[in-house]
């Protein structure tokens, strides 16, 4: 049966818009079921704020199943909060106890400017994908799906990387604000597959260099892997670096051939 938590002290970052300065505001949650999710607790707070004629706290969220990657909160300094392998929306109040103080902030990274309160702009991720995060496969021309067998370990490795939900926790957790885990996961998904070979080096070069336009540099802290709700391994960064290094030679050769 469910228990109730009492007297939670929330410190929430409020900011009216991208160009204004923000501040922490304090709120008390008198009582909440431990079956409630973290975002449901914020729903309850927002209902109260509306009934007090105040502005509810803006935060990004959608599927609440941990797959769409929309939710994005720093909870007590940790991206997505204290539970491993868990996005904010899947975090439940049973992970907290009565009387806890909970600090809630937006993703902290200069590449993700704040829009309002806890909502940030992550469109830099889309720019990285647009630069090369795809296999060029126009509709209609595909050969039979079983024509090219893919060894199970290869398909599994691609899937391990492809699980990335694009939430940005890796960037928020990184002291440098680097997006290497995200970018490398996206590259590795396609670069290990036979279908991805034709554009392999062009892809890695374009995506890494687009990433560098927006994000900080990786110094192998490993904070990203710890924060990732899909526990994507930082091994993918090594694979990306290897392919990037090769690309500098391969792509030059391709060019010289005209």
């Amino acid at each position: 049966m469910s228990n109730h938590l009492k007297n939670l002290k929330l410190k929430i970052w409020r900011q009216d818009g991208p160009n204004t300065s923000g501040r922490f505001e304090d709120y008390i949650i008198d009582e909440i079921s431990d079956e409630a999710s973290f975002l449901e607790m914020l729903d309850v707070l927002n209902e109260r704020l509306i009934s007090d004629n105040k502005l509810p706290v803006v935060f990004d969220h959608d599927c609440r199943e941990g797959i769409c990657g929309t939710c994005s909160l720093m909870i007590n300094g940790q991206a997505h909060g204290p539970e491993r392998r868990t996005a904010t929306c899947q975090l439940h109040m049973r992970k907290f106890k009565s009387g806890d103080e909970i600090v809630i902030e937006p993703w902290r990274a200069s590449a993700f400017p704040i829009i309002k309160d806890l909502m940030v702009d992550r469109s830099a991720f889309d720019r990285i994908i647009e630069s090369g995060g795809f296999i060029t496969a126009p509709t209609g021309g595909a050969p039979d799906a079983n024509l090219i067998p893919i060894p199970k370990p290869v398909a599994d490795a691609a899937m391990d990387s492809a699980e990335c939900i694009g939430c940005g926790a890796c960037v928020a957790a990184c002291p440098n604000g680097a997006a290497n885990l995200f970018t490398a996961a996206k590259i590795n998904h396609l670069n290990v597959l036979p279908q991805g070979q034709a554009e392999r080096y062009k892809r890695v070069e374009a995506m890494v260099e687009t990433m560098d336009e927006y994000f900080g540099s990786c110094t192998n802290h490993g904070e990203c892997e710890a924060a990732c709700p899909k526990e994507i391994s930082i091994d993918v960064i090594a694979l990306m670096n290897k392919d990037y290094r090769k690309s500098k030679v391969k792509n030059r050769k391709e060019l010289s051939r005209g």
Binding site: F134, I135, A137, T139, G140, G141, A142, P143, D144, A145, P149, I150, P151, K152, A155, D156, A158, M159, A162, H189, L190, L193, Q195, G196
Partner: peptide, 12 residues
């Protein structure tokens, strides 16, 4: 066929 060509990692 189309999704495999695009790199969707279906179970194998």
């Amino acid at each position: 066929d189309q999704m495999v060509a695009q790199g969707v990692p279906f179970a194998r």
